[in-house]
Amino acid sequence: MVASPSTADRYDRTPAQTRRVKARLQDPAVQGLVLIAPAVLVYALFAFYPMLDVIQLSFMKWNGLTAAKQWVGLDNYRYVLGDDPVFWVAFRNTLIWTALSVIFPPLIGLGLALGLNQNIPGRSPLRALFYMPVIIAPIAVATMWRWMFDPFFGLFNSLLTTAGWTNLIQDWLGDRSVALYSVFIGYVWEVAGFSMVLFLAGLQGVSQTLIEAARIDGAGRFQVFRYVTLPALRPTITIVLILSLINSLKAFDIVYGMTGGGPAQSTQMLAMWAYTQAMQLGDFGRGSAISVVLLLMTVVIVVPYLRWTLRRQEA
């Protein structure tokens, strides 16, 4: 790190300049800034700025291609919230999807984790199997399930035919009343393993001595679970629920790949509708207004969790 004047000359710096740069770099605060700069720069330019920009764009009329941007005030919001027939369908679907995502995958994950935490053979391969779908590309999961839901040769209708329950045969992704739930079944398969792994980690923190003690005191299985395991899992439960909630808002690929929002917008979601408005219908203003609504919903959820996390970090 020691640069002699001759090396400095090669970089076209006077010795005095080199000395100044070196003196600055002696300062720990400057070193700290140098280390953090690349991450902050790329984050500010490509994550934080777009987040602010989307707010500005939501007050504009712009097709995304030409230079002509026009300030239109609240027109985009008025259209999206008032006249857009799809927005409220997408809003409702997003709420249903989020509610289901917070209930089913965590419950299944908890069940699997509790089971795999017992003294039974084959725990490792079973755990590996349940987690496997999590690492598969969501778009591939969508393609897989779309094929399984195929009305003619897909897995589900073939099985129903074999079983003789022909009255249960559905056009799983083509029927407006069932399509959203069909997609959700694929989603459960994809993400349940994620909750399971977090719960398994949480269960490692449950004190075995406490469980033993409760048992010796005559507590039954259910009582041990209710009064020892469950309270000890509380931080894990919070984390799993919040992550499930946030991940459910990210569920773009699986819907895009399975139905593309159809049939007749019955599986449309806010994130995908924002994308469609901006990138496919060429209305960046309306698309951004939808994004802002979704961002606000996210922030309302995230901020309390953020405060909780920070308090845990300090502790």
Binding site: I36, V40, Y43, L45, F46, A47, F48, Y49, P50, M51, D53, V54, L57, G64, I246, L249, K250, F252, A271, A274, Y275, A278, M279, F284, G287, S288, S291, L294, L295, T298, V302, Y305, L306, T309, L310
Partner: peptide, 24 residues
Amino acid sequence: AFLAIVFGTMIPFQVMLAPIFKQV
């Protein structure tokens, strides 16, 4: 900076694909 980082872990980019496109 730390606060911004933790906040950033929670915001899904799927929400703002259009402005990311614009920036790129």
